[in-house]
Design a protein around this nucleic acid. Structure first.
Lengths: 143, 143
DNA sequence: CGCCTATTGAAAAACTTTTACAATAAGGAA
DNA sequence: TTCCTTATTGTAAAAGTTTTTCAATAGGCG
């Protein structure tokens, strides 16, 4: 189901700022902060406000349409979320975020942590950082 | 090695604010934000400034003396770091943070993610959230 | 004990996020 | 299509967080 139908069915309207924010997020492979989204859209001639960007991001996250990722420098970025898994690996060179399927592998880890700590695990935060294949090749060439 | 020796050997001084911040962090089991640390120390009669708390936390993190944890609500908390692993599981009821050893289990996960994404993994962010044994018992009793 | 300078505190600046409220526009109904 | 209702927006201000600046202070070595 596309995001517009989902919004409508949840009782929300398809406004201009919402379209613009989603379009921008879908057009990039790198997580974008609220401010970055605002600045890029303004540069493209859009007339939305930064407040709308914040409100839109909050709404989209709550509906599961986009995911938050923690950038290495501490800022919070947003990427479109696919259905299912929402774990990301970030390239430290080109900043691309790539999803990976880790659910079944995580199950084992969760089981071990529960045994070890006696906690009941209900949620987790998992991200990897590294260098993507493209950027590995680039550094090889220049070497 | 205790933190004061480590600080000295790294060329830093043992100042009053640094002692106070470390003492407070060591006295609690729950991650504390910069502001919370400041407010508690002031309530105890300490005369340090919030700026010093920020500076001290930054220094301690860079030296590996404390770790940052992401709170579910989005704020950043700090806890004393033990040598070695720095992965935490947070209780959503009492907010305690407990370290767990997950290095060897993670190795397998990292291997699979590298294979799947062709990334070279160099770092990761991993936290669990759940309910600790004590709080599980409490909810059983009241039920 | 005294000196050198790392560190602190106060104030201001910079930056980020939220709130309030009147104006606008999305989209169902006629 | 046009009208009407109200969700959503934009502006401005407030609230909150983190960083910077610089003179005063105090840690710790000689």
């Amino acid at each position: 189901m596309d995001w517009q139908k989902l919004l409508t069915q949840a009782g929300f309207r398809i406004s201009k700022p919402r379209k613009q924010v989603m379009q921008l997020l879908e057009s990039t492979q790198t997580p974008q902060t609220a401010l970055a989204i605002y600045q890029q859209l303004r540069a493209q001639g859009a007339r939305l406000s930064l407040v709308s960007v914040y409100r839109t991001l909050e709404l989209f996250v709550s509906l599961g349409l986009i995911s938050m990722v923690y950038e290495p420098e501490g800022s919070l970025g947003y990427v479109p979320a696919s259905a299912g898994h929402h774990h990301y690996i970030l390239c430290q060179v080109c900043h691309r975020a790539v999803e990976f399927a880790g659910t079944e592998d995580l199950a084992g880890l969760i089981y071990q942590v529960e045994n070890q700590t006696q906690f009941l695990v209900s949620d987790h935060l998992l991200q990897f950082f590294g260098v993507c294949p493209k950027c590995q090749n680039k550094s090889k060439e220049s070497a």
